[in-house]
């Protein structure tokens, strides 16, 4: 790691102010992804602002009947929350499908959303990567890209977003709340948090410099069954090859795009009366293969109808 300075933030307002005023500063929450990347010389902030102890770990009910999850709530605490388990089981299922117990105990809600791709070419600093070193090219494009994106990829980047939690939040239609260095708080749908790679895969979110995620808000418990299914090479402690969150009539896919992928075409088809298999094939019309990742199209086409069937069976109280 390159040398850096460290401060522990005492409140959110001063944290975002420090982030705006200090060159090359980054927020540090759980650290499970940032420190990993710093050790590999992929991230090299000059200054870390530790927001891990900000009083933003609470999970509280909203007046609308939903839940506000503080950005510093650990993944474990969110997954274990009785209200989440009872009313948003897809979120618990998604969280416990990711990482390990140790990682989930440290990783935070905000940090989980902002974790970076596990693309092997991003992780290896000897390889070109437009995300890590803009303009250097993409080693994965013609490389061993089995785990790359089938939706929304660009010629500059075919990386996927690794989060499981974010897939469930996307299907739930969660809202992200942030605080800007100017002191302005804003809230927007989670689907607007992450970007597709386009020409600038190094820019991964629509957050502005120094903007801090303060909470994620869940809408009132949705109707219908909820299911999270993740396909992976190993039974546990492994990234997904593809995953799906079903929340009533909402569908989101994981490990298939640069962002959690809301399957809007499939949702529309379902609403129009298409079968689950037809609906997902509608979504997959926009999918593209990159060498070795074509199997993901098959996985998604088979997994999604199975997950929808499971969710519908729940919905019927089966």
């Amino acid at each position: 790691m390159r040398p850096f300075t460290y401060e522990r933030a005492t409140d959110a307002a001063s944290a975002v102010k420090a982030a705006a005023e200090t060159p090359n500063a980054k927020f540090l929450a759980g650290g499970t992804n940032l420190l990993d990347l710093m050790k590999l010389e992929i991230e090299h902030p000059a200054h870390l602002i530790d927001v891990g102890r900000l009083p933003m770990a609470a999970i509280e009910e909203t007046p609308e009947g939903g839940l506000r999850i503080g950005a510093m709530a650990t993944n474990s605490h969110v997954a274990a929350d009785a209200r989440v388990r009872a009313h948003y089981p897809v979120l618990t299922q998604a969280i416990v499908a990711g990482g390990s117990g140790q990682l989930r105990n440290k990783a935070t809600t905000g940090g989980n959303l902002l974790q970076r791709t596990r693309c092997a070419y991003f992780y290896d600093t000897t390889k070109p990567c437009n995300k890590r070193a803009p303009g250097s090219g993409c080693g994965a494009l013609e490389g061993l890209n089995r785990n790359s994106a089938i939706f929304g990829a660009s010629h500059a980047c075919i990386a996927t977003h690794p989060s499981d939690m974010a897939v469930a939040l996307t299907a739930l239609g969660a809202t992200v709340e942030t605080l800007s260095p100017s002191g302005r708080a804003r809230a927007f749908p989670i689907i607007e948090l992450h970007r597709l790679p386009g020409e600038t895969p190094d820019v991964e979110t629509h957050l502005i410099a120094g903007e801090l995620i303060t909470a994620v808000v869940l809408p009132p418990p949705p109707d219908g069954g909820q299911v999270y299914r993740k396909v992976r090479d190993r039974a546990s402690y492994a990234g997904g090859l593809a995953s799906v969150a079903v929340v009533g009539a909402n569908l989101a896919l994981g490990a298939v795009a640069h962002k959690p992928w809301r399957a809007v075409d499939a949702e529309a088809a379902l609403k129009a009366g298409a079968s689950p298999a037809e609906a997902i094939s509608r979504e997959l019309e926009a999918a593209s293969e990159n060498g070795r990742n074509g199997f993901k199209i098959d996985v998604v086409s088979r997994l999604v109808p199975a997950a929808i069937a499971e969710a519908r069976a729940q919905g019927r109280g089966a």
Binding site: G31, T32, D36, Q102, N105, K106
Partner: peptide
């Protein structure tokens, strides 16, 4: 609480 001490400062 159990954590990975390698990924913490």
């Amino acid at each position: 609480v159990r954590i990975n001490s390698c990924l913490s400062l």
